[in-house]
Amino acid sequence: MLFSATSSILIVFFIIAFMLSEGWSAINLDFIFGLIWHPKTNEFGILPIIVSTVIVGVGAVFIALVIGIPCAIFLAEFAPNWVRNIIKPSVEMLVGVPSIVLGFFGLMLIVPFIRDNLGGRGECILAGWIILSIMTLPHVISISEDAIRAVPNSYREASLTLGATKWQTVRNITLPNAKSGILASLILGMGNAVGETMAVYMVIGNPNIPWIPTSILDSVRVLTSTIVMEYGYVAWGSQHQHALFAIGVVLFVLVAIINLMARYAIKRGMIER
């Protein structure tokens, strides 16, 4: 028992140690703040890649918020029981739908649509936002709905007795109380979006030398797609290989920060209650 329990520690320790030992030598200020990623000339600057990663992640979660939170409120507060009994399970079924299928969907429909109607290359930040928001939507809806329903009924009843309408109750009582749960669902969704690989890789373009994007129709590289694109031909032991593992380390740190924020949000919510 103890052995299997400690194996998780070992595995994590092993992965982190391995990534660090391979990537550490490439991490320095030029790496983090460099503007040019061009392995051919041994230039490894990932600032444009980090910025793109954050833009893609934040934008996707924002879309998921705009569509998902009203949906969660609808399910938790307004939907008749029979509607909820159909929709909630079907949304939950879609949590974790294979992302490769979403990428395929994006490649077949969304990329050509953007190229033909909005201009640009089609493979761009916007396409990444759409695919990732579809991916995070079920998470956001399902967790937020749980958070809203977890608000004690007595709160609602008190408000309704005082003559407030249902929407006033939701806005002034229920939502503020469910705030931290909703926030946590969004942050977790962002962690997923930032760490997602294949679906993003298929729709964001990956330019030869990435730049800091100036338009949502720009093609970008994110941390994960750079790894997937270049792991194959990298010469083991070269500066390039260390730089790729260093990207892995940066990605790991980024996702860890996001997850810590989510945990903090959840904890704060529990204290408030």
Partner: peptide
């Protein structure tokens, strides 16, 4: 040098698939 704006595809098949549609 090849321009930075060029999109990178990792196989002949991918290149062909994109050019055939764009």
């Amino acid at each position: 040098e090849i321009a930075g704006e060029a999109l990178v595809k990792t196989s002949n098949g991918e290149v062909r698939a994109i050019v055939a549609t764009d």
